[in-house]
Write a protein that binds this DNA or RNA. Structure first.
Length: 405
RNA sequence: GUGGGUAUAGCUCAGUUGGUUAGAGCGCCAGAUUGUGGCUCUGGAGGUCGUGGGUUCGAGACCCAUUACCCACCCCA
């Protein structure tokens, strides 16, 4: 037997329906916010991700499905969605339309070669949005509000965490003073933290190790070291969230894992799904477009981990729908086929059972198929050109001519 | 990459200190006076106990190896 590869899953029946329900709901809401659908290739040049996501995260360093294609290109399966959308944005020369706003949403598979666990797969799916050209912090607020709308509509509980990562003016000096502080206390830190001083110092603040946390009480916080503009923006974001009734907490340890983030960062978390609790994350990336050779353009986006919310979604109740057609005699089966075609052309969901069976068996079959109507041709009906129809919901039944169903 | 856990029917799981024909519930199929679904009852099909070695008179149970899955760390959505 051949099984799916490790960390890759089939979506079937209820899970497939959930996936569709989530993407359709999120897409509908994103369109209401003025975002339009974009689809970009799953396969991209490796250097796109090296330059955008950056080398500091494990994603690019060791988790990419990377290979050389038959033309000798160094390519990989996308590990996230933003880089491809930004590449497409620049390639379409939309960055030349200074002052214009462009807003996109997308969804689809992403690939990371990680050890699978709850809420983590090697092929997983994200729904994301990217907004270009709008530098105002109102856009940051609006994206958070959109996420809240999406999760509210899906019936998912969450908490919102926000932070500001500063800009190119205030982040580097902060980072430097943090690293200095960390080096002073390095001897007391755990092995992971000592490594992180060089790779991703802000992550150290987030260490789950209690002894590390005690040492970190005196560490400088980014939110106390923002420049005037970043500080003003962050204050306004908090104001807008409060005014709109979206509860949030400031988490100065919240870091986005990807190098391209700056300014506002946010994360939606759930406490119902195990260790991988981040169900959506995003933030501003005002420098990314120029990193990828476009004209400087402010940008902000988020992504939802679809698998992570899959089991949290409250699905709407589904009701009986459509027709089940059956025959009790072999000679009647052909009549069903022409009838089914008529029904389907008329937009009615219709399934046909080709095997002649007892009426009882057909009723069972119709019930199991979730059909609203069970229609059967038996001996009597065949001889006078009629069909017996039962409404499984209202339990009413009637016999009608085949042409008048 | 590092830890820990689990592998018995289509699914969820029992299986007592090793003992003879390996069980239950759900699901599936068929019946319960021949044309009336969901509920109930009866019957039936379905398992080389993940795989390979070992200990033993005897292994689903114990030991070793291997593979897969799960959970956690790392990282991230």
């Amino acid at each position: 037997m051949i099984n799916a590869l490790r960390g890759m899953k089939d979506l079937i029946f209820e899970e497939a329906e959930r996936y569709r329900y989530i993407t359709e709901t999120a897409a509908r809401i994103a369109q209401n916010y003025g975002f339009s659908y974009i689809e970009t290739p799953i396969l991209e040049e490796t250097r796109l991700f090296k330059r955008s996501v950056g080398e500091s995260s494990d994603i690019v360093g060791k988790e990419m499905y990377q290979f050389t294609d038959k033309g000798g290109n160094d390519v990989c399966l996308r590990p996230e969605g933003t880089a491809g959308v930004v590449r497409a944005f620049i390639q379409a020369k939309l960055d030349r339309q200074q002052g214009q706003k462009y807003r996109f949403f997308y969804f689809g598979p992403m690939f990371r070669y990680e050890r699978p666990q709850k809420g983590r797969l090697r092929q997983f799916h994200q729904f994301g949005v990217e907004s270009f050209g709008e530098a105002g912090v109102e856009e940051d607020f609006t994206l958070i509000q959109m996420l809240a709308d999406i999760f509210d509509t899906l019936g998912i509980r969450y908490t919102v965490k926000i932070n500001s990562l500063g800009c190119k003016e205030c982040m580097p000096p902060y980072r430097e003073s943090l690293v200095n502080h960390l080096q002073d206390i390095e001897d007391g830190l755990c092995e992971d933290c000592r490594r992180r001083i060089a790779t991703n110092p802000i992550r150290v603040l987030d260490c789950k190790n209690e002894s590390c946390q005690n040492l970190l009480k005196e560490a400088p916080r980014i939110t106390d070291n923002l420049c005037e503009k970043c500080d003003r923006d962050f204050a306004r974001l908090k104001h807008l969230l409060s005014e709109s009734g979206i509860p949030y907490e400031v988490d100065a340890n919240l870091v986005r894992g990807l190098d391209y983030y700056s300014g506002t960062a946010f994360e939606f978390v759930s406490d119902e799904i195990g260790a991988q609790s981040a169900i959506a994350g995003g933030g501003r990336y005002d420098r990314l477009v120029e990193f990828l050779d476009g004209r400087p353009t402010p940008g902000i986006g988020f992504a939802i981990g679809i698998e992570r919310i899959m089991e949290l979604v409250q699905m709407p109740e589904k009701s009986r729908e459509g027709w089940y057609l059956g025959a009790m005699l072999p000679e009647a089966v052909e009549k069903l086929l022409t009838l089914a075609h008529q029904q389907r052309k008329a937009g009615e969901k219709t399934v046909v059972e080709y095997t002649p069976k007892s009426l009882k068996a057909h009723l069972k079959g119709a019930d199991k198929a979730g059909a609203r109507y069970c229609a059967v041709i038996g001996e009597d009906e065949l001889s006078n050109g009629t069909i017996w129809v039962k409404d499984l919901e209202e339990k009413s039944e009637k016999v009608v001519p085949l042409t008048e169903i």
